[in-house]
Design a protein around this nucleic acid. Sequence first.
DNA 1: ACACGTTGTGTACACGTGTACATAATATAG
DNA 2: CTATATTATGTACACGTGTACACAACGTGT
Lengths: 340, 340
Amino acid sequence: MSEKVSSRKQQVRATDVARHAGVSRVSVSRTFTPGASVSAATRAKVLKSADILGYRVNRLASSLNRSESGIVALIAAEIDTPYRAAMIAELTDKLQAAGKVTMLINTSGFEERVKDALLQAISFRTEAAIILSGAPDPSLADTCFSNGMKLVLINREEDFPGSLQIGPDNRAAGKTALKALLRAGCQRIALANSGNATWSIVERQKGFLAAAEEAGVEVISEATGVTSYEAGLEIGTALMDREDRPDGVFCTTDLIACGVIDAARQRFGLRTPDDLSVIGFDDIPQAAWEGYDLTTFAQPMDRIIDKCLEWCTTDQPSTETVQLPARFVWRNSVKKTVVV
Amino acid sequence: MSEKVSSRKQQVRATDVARHAGVSRVSVSRTFTPGASVSAATRAKVLKSADILGYRVNRLASSLNRSESGIVALIAAEIDTPYRAAMIAELTDKLQAAGKVTMLINTSGFEERVKDALLQAISFRTEAAIILSGAPDPSLADTCFSNGMKLVLINREEDFPGSLQIGPDNRAAGKTALKALLRAGCQRIALANSGNATWSIVERQKGFLAAAEEAGVEVISEATGVTSYEAGLEIGTALMDREDRPDGVFCTTDLIACGVIDAARQRFGLRTPDDLSVIGFDDIPQAAWEGYDLTTFAQPMDRIIDKCLEWCTTDQPSTETVQLPARFVWRNSVKKTVVV
DNA sequence: ACACGTTGTGTACACGTGTACATAATATAG
DNA sequence: CTATATTATGTACACGTGTACACAACGTGT
């Protein structure tokens, strides 16, 4: 005869442990609170009983009581993209090391999902929300702050007082890319860009074009689709099909660069760096693959994340905008400079 | 003169909204509880006041009260690996669609981190823990169940009563791979495997080797390093260096396959499928890249996840082991069968 | 007008924990 | 041994919410 079970799941509470150990409930609480004063004897009893009963402190209750959830929200789209995935991996790892817990919110698809994501983060009284893609509704930001939530925008700069906005120095990278192509002796320089670029990517483009104008160089621009390998293929095909086929391309993203390289190689029989110099951005793992060997810019990921955590763990952080230099990674997709 | 601020962050509570709207606190609660009975008039008042004050239901308190957190833990290592990242992206997406929230726990590094991850999940009264890599301590599993937490193991089969164990039919895939290589007319068949393979990968290997033995075919085995592109490079180099250089290779992972292809192409000038037939597993995005065009097995990801969610939302799910067929994806890394 | 079902609101309690305060037990100094 | 400082424990309350229960208001049919 199966006993009628209550719909409410019953869990092991501190009270149960206390009764089992023959101590007060607060002693149990103190045992699991670092820095609280309990005698070694009672602590031992509590730990033993807790182990037997399988007790774990309920962090929902604990968080509610201390109004510190220990949760950090990670809001991102296209999580399965190499760069984004690497970022998330590093972030979760370091957050955990700092004693925080990550709540991952996927906003792929509609742009407006960022709003829902933030609302969810607020509901869970997240200590901070780190936004990797998209931008929140400014009015929502106030709600975040009024609930004591910190806001970090990675790879995006907007007018968000009270938040940390951090990312690589995209303009400088764009400039460096142009110089590198010129120094490699490229005659017809092109820019391969995504059709719907993010703020960060547009900045790279601007830096590249500004440097070109400064140097008096004409740039062939091609942009289609979303930021992806497939777009790179398409762009690369379009570029190689031109009568004035470029011999140097700056791709605003490694994924696009891989597509361009493959288009040149598989569809036109052209090789990097002999027939075509290519520079990417992000330094995704595939950039180091021997089939690409892509010269690119490594995101200052570690420093971004370190700064992120430091800022988030500050009591009353002030509005801050940080640009960190991207590291130029020389590989073998750009023609070597001829020593005169 | 700055006012002394309480260390305890004060938030907007339902009580505040109630006072502002001139209604009872429970009316506020009912307004935000689907299916609760409130008059349209009070609901409107509540919503208006809530909007003005920026009120959001505190889900920590709500979860504590109803003992339903709505959180699902995703425990995984090597999050930035293409297949793993895709899995996580899909999982978070569908979990959100089902009204759940994902807590991502990174267990890269030490194997024992899985234990800590599970403990953390228990602390947050996670409704389910989906383990993508590694296996939990069996004794911990009991603690999970006693706290009403569901346990799902993806790509791993162990003796875990009470859990759902789900993944592709790895053995069958290994068998299919061998048959495909034979049908392609390969004479010297090899197996490229990781040095420290997971259960899932070992199964593929077993299926492949069993089929080979059945067919009376000798298999050249090579295994090194961790499951990665770099390992593939190394293995590919070792294989191509052999006197009895294989002309057909089954790689237990797409990453390894990409490495093998690159080793053959970049280091030996060999091309697929003309000089070498290669089959992978996972169907990561790079497998579809034109530089690889890899014939491989697609993980039945959608079906795995659907089953996962269905099982997790069942009241009292029973122990279940599910193997779903992997879809063979024909591309162009295996020599076409000669029509006789 | 009355009995009755329906609907909306208020009261009281529970969820499981951390901590300020008071108090009992113990160690230390004279 | 007494006065005092230190430590360990117990009591009471707070965190913010959902819901069972009681009850008032209300419409409806006779």
